[in-house]
Computed example of a mutant assay.
Amino acid sequence: MASTDTITTTAVVGSGYMGGGIAQVLASHGYKVALGDVDGDTAERARARLIEQARGFEAHGLFPDGAAQTIEGNLTAAGSIEEAVVAADYIAEAVPEEPALKAAILRRISAAALPRAVIGTNTSAIPIGELAQSVDTPERFLGVHWMNPAPFIPGVELIPGPDTDPDVLNLAEELIRALGKTPARVADTPGFVANRLQFALYKEAAQIVDDGAATPEQIDAVVSNTFGFRLALFGPFAIGDMAGLDVYESSYRTLEKAYGERFAVPETLTATVKNGNLGLKSGQGFLDIDPADRPALLAYRDNAYARLSHLRAQLGAAPGL
């Protein structure tokens, strides 16, 4: 399992919005993809929908020329889940986020699949170790968490379970890169990284509404036009290092005074600042950015923000918002 050359045939079990998007990505990059669902008719309807959707994406310049034809040539509908996975080298399970349902489907997949087939579950928050209990030979099983819509969001979380073979993890990472995506290996903790952060933000946003401090519309306007704008280009640690970690520490102390323990200064931030590591100001922070790269990084930041502003102006307001 050292190379994606070992993967030629794939299967996607669950042909809804998420699974369908994963299938489009695999098929557009030259992999044979068998769609499996509750029955053959459902899989065939999904196949027709995905091809028609791909034609629309191509017509609007969202897919490259010829992508729809490539997808149509590589995408087939299987009569059953077992038929879909029986010859696959890589299997993406993407059924709804219900633990009992996923467990049942994974039992069927692992019973019918080739012993060497890699099985990746697309779950937003269910622990991989829990789902691995339903897989024969859990060494070949891991979490492969795509983001919606799968064809257009670049990031994919890779989550090994307690028994995942390191070679399987390496192969999954190589496959995701071959699909033009950006993989990130994260630990098997509830919510992993993306949803743990996303839902923490959502909870605080809901609390602000409950407090009467702002409306949902006002909160969305603030987020999308301030720190959310920056997050399109940089992660929180890069943004913090550029802003100055001493500023962050001071702000946390103000927030803690107002809102209590949930806004206490993170211990790792306190320790970093105490050691004189303030981010770009001191040449070191959480990311230890080389001081020699500081001018180029700041120039990149300013150029990127300006170009993103221009793009948003060209796109205009989102319909209905």
Rank of each mutant, 00 (worst) to 15 (best):
D136A: 15
P127Y: 06
E157Q: 01
D136T: 15
G129L: 12
E157W: 04
N122T: 08
T137S: 14
T137Y: 11
A150P: 06
D136H: 12
V156T: 01
I176T: 02
R140K: 15
A125Q: 11
D136V: 15
L158T: 02
Q133E: 15
P162Q: 14
G161Q: 09
L171R: 06
V156N: 03
D165T: 07
Q133A: 15
G143L: 09
D165E: 07
P183G: 02
L131D: 11
P162T: 13
L171E: 09
T164C: 10
L142N: 05
L169I: 07
R140D: 10
E173Y: 02
D163P: 00
I126L: 14
R140F: 13
G180Y: 08
V135H: 11
S134M: 12
P138V: 09
I176V: 15
T182N: 11
E139M: 09
L171D: 03
E130A: 14
A132D: 07
L179A: 03
A178W: 01
T164P: 12
L131K: 04
D136G: 14
A150W: 00
R140I: 10
I153V: 13
E139P: 03
V168I: 15
T182K: 12
V168P: 10
L175N: 06
I153K: 00
I126D: 09
L131F: 07
A125T: 14
G129S: 13
E174A: 15
V144P: 06
I128R: 01
N170C: 03
H145L: 11
L169F: 03
P151S: 02
T123E: 10
I176C: 00
E157V: 00
L131I: 08
D136K: 15
